[in-house]
Amino acid sequence: MYTAGIDMGARSVKVVFLEELKVEGAPQLKWGVKKTHIMFPEDLDMDVAAEKAYTEALQLAGLAREAVGRVVATGAGRKQVKFAQDNVTEVSAGARGAVFMHPSARTVIDVGAEEGRGIKAAPDGKVVDFAGNEKCAAGAGAFAESMSRALQLSLKDFGEASLRSEKTIPMNAQCTVFAESEVVSLIHANTPKEDIAKAVLDAVASRVCAMARRVGIEEDVVLIGGMVHNPGFVRSLQGALGVDRVLLPDLPEYVGALGAALIAAEIH
């Protein structure tokens, strides 16, 4: 029997099917067998997009709808997934998925495009403590992305450029608008791009770190969300947290959907 986790974002849907295998009488969850990431246009209604994406995901996975016993949705648009039997917040799904992938993880840092959050998780992946920042977008991926555009670098080159810098330029602004003007001043002062890139990523890391401190940093720390792909950010985060290592899951974008599928399996 399969369960499905659907991470419904503003523009994309990620679907993970989880298969429960009986191994010598004990149920063992196997994942990663089927997963799909589908983008949808902005003007498509979310409930329509969810249905479309799920149908496509089933087809790609070669699964019949009846093969899936339970569907749990997560993500900002989770309530629009009408065919899901339940929905859970990104906090619970992220923690559950991250601890499943890295069982030693106790602090989960989730940096998505629009939001960052720090989560303290129990060994079973349940949330013990969490903190987000409802106001400040400077602790999230979209800020890094817009700054990379200001430097005319792709996000990938932006992250790599920052790795070539050893300079620390503090950015004091607490909101994206002022932070952007600080970046513009640095550009006008002919500051090397790599130093600006590092300053921006250090600033995002320091904001994310403040949220993690609120819940208490307990190792191991695992980072989930799109910023996993940014090696410059990972280095900045490691420095800000003062830890030797930050664990990185193989498929960071799917951690939420995986967590939802795991929760679906547990309540199945």
Binding site: V127, F130, N133, K135, C136, C175, M211, R214, V215
Partner: peptide, 16 residues
């Protein structure tokens, strides 16, 4: 679970 609601900005840290 401890749920922290709020934010940090230039003037301070405001969480309930």
């Amino acid at each position: 679970m401890i749920a922290n609601y709020g934010y940090k900005d230039g003037s301070g840290e405001y969480y309930i």
